[in-house]
Simulated scan of single mutants.
Amino acid sequence: MNGVNQTVVNLVPDPKGDIKLLQITDTHLFADAGKDLLGIKTVASYDAIIKHAAKYAGQCAAVLCTGDLSQDHSAQSYVDFSDRIKTLEMPCYWLPGNHDMQEIMLPSLLAEGLAQTKQIISEHWQIILLDSQVSGVPYGHLSESQLSFLEKKLQEYPEKHTLIAVHHHVLPVGAAWLDQHILKNNDQFIALISKFDNVKAVLSGHVHQSFDTVKNKVRYITSPSTCVQFKPQSDDFAVDDKPPGYRYLVLTKSGKIETQVERLKPGEFTTDENATGY
């Protein structure tokens, strides 16, 4: 696993020059494995996702975990997250979501050997991991220091294709109740990255659904949660009956991204259809 305090790491591409990745997001773990979120026991569904994703072990260079790792802010939930992700036997790079408590998250994950990496460098790509958390609220915002960091890293490697990972979604997904919890200064973010033609995609979690669109030649991708799914195109809170999932990505040498969503079998985990919020 990645060592402590490695804010910048290097990844070696495969023989074709590509980087293969997994995205695992919004695990919402509890210290108590018997607790559920809207009817789904999140530790059990995370376990099932890890077992499903094991087929990619040996193929992928790393796994990106894009926030909301814990639901109850417990140190144990982060230890459990770490224990399971390590079984994939690939480096794990993570960032915080709105449900994470960083004063517990950071020392807990560091103690498990999962450093807070902020930049990943490869031969043809760089990946920049941002912190969009605003303490105590569900929406996101990138601070001036985060935006300055992003601009500096984009200037540092203008020749490399760039993937930006951030918890909150940048573009509306068409669900009114979710879109009020978007990255609030998305216009500022988009204006910044528009100055660089090497930004290929922005990868997010947060919305518990798959979304994939292009704006100004940049691809914006979100992915399903390992537990509860939210219903697309719903103005009011609504859960979806799709199974828990994760995402597989190939960052090709040419700068294109090939990706697919992987899901568990239908019926293995069922959300409470009468849930009105969480």
Score class of each variant (00 low, 15 high):
3 G>L: 13
5 N>T: 13
8 V>A: 10
10 N>V: 11
13 P>G: 06
15 P>V: 10
17 G>A: 08
18 D>A: 05
20 K>I: 00
23 Q>S: 00
30 F>R: 00
31 A>H: 03
34 G>E: 12
41 K>M: 13
46 Y>L: 10
47 D>Y: 06
51 K>D: 14
53 A>V: 06
55 K>A: 13
59 Q>M: 10
66 T>Q: 04
71 Q>P: 02
74 S>V: 03
75 A>Y: 08
76 Q>Y: 04
77 S>G: 07
90 M>T: 14
95 L>Q: 13
98 N>T: 00
99 H>T: 03
101 M>H: 14
101 M>F: 13
107 P>E: 02
110 L>E: 14
117 T>L: 07
120 I>F: 01
122 S>Y: 04
124 H>R: 13
126 Q>F: 12
130 L>M: 10
130 L>T: 05
133 Q>W: 00
134 V>K: 04
140 G>Y: 07
142 L>R: 02
146 Q>L: 09
153 K>T: 15
154 L>R: 06
154 L>D: 04
155 Q>T: 13
157 Y>K: 10
163 L>W: 05
164 I>S: 02
164 I>L: 06
166 V>P: 06
172 P>W: 02
174 G>D: 02
175 A>R: 01
177 W>A: 06
181 H>K: 04
182 I>T: 01
187 D>R: 15
187 D>K: 15
190 I>R: 04
190 I>G: 00
193 I>M: 09
197 D>A: 11
197 D>G: 04
204 S>T: 12
207 V>F: 06
211 F>Q: 12
212 D>P: 04
216 N>Y: 05
217 K>T: 14
218 V>F: 03
219 R>A: 02
221 I>F: 01
221 I>A: 04
222 T>W: 01
224 P>K: 07
226 T>G: 09
228 V>R: 02
228 V>Y: 02
229 Q>V: 10
232 P>T: 11
234 S>P: 03
237 F>S: 05
238 A>K: 08
239 V>F: 02
240 D>E: 10
246 Y>N: 04
248 Y>V: 07
249 L>C: 07
250 V>T: 15
257 I>V: 12
258 E>L: 15
263 R>P: 11
265 K>F: 04
269 F>G: 07
273 E>F: 06
273 E>D: 10
276 T>A: 09
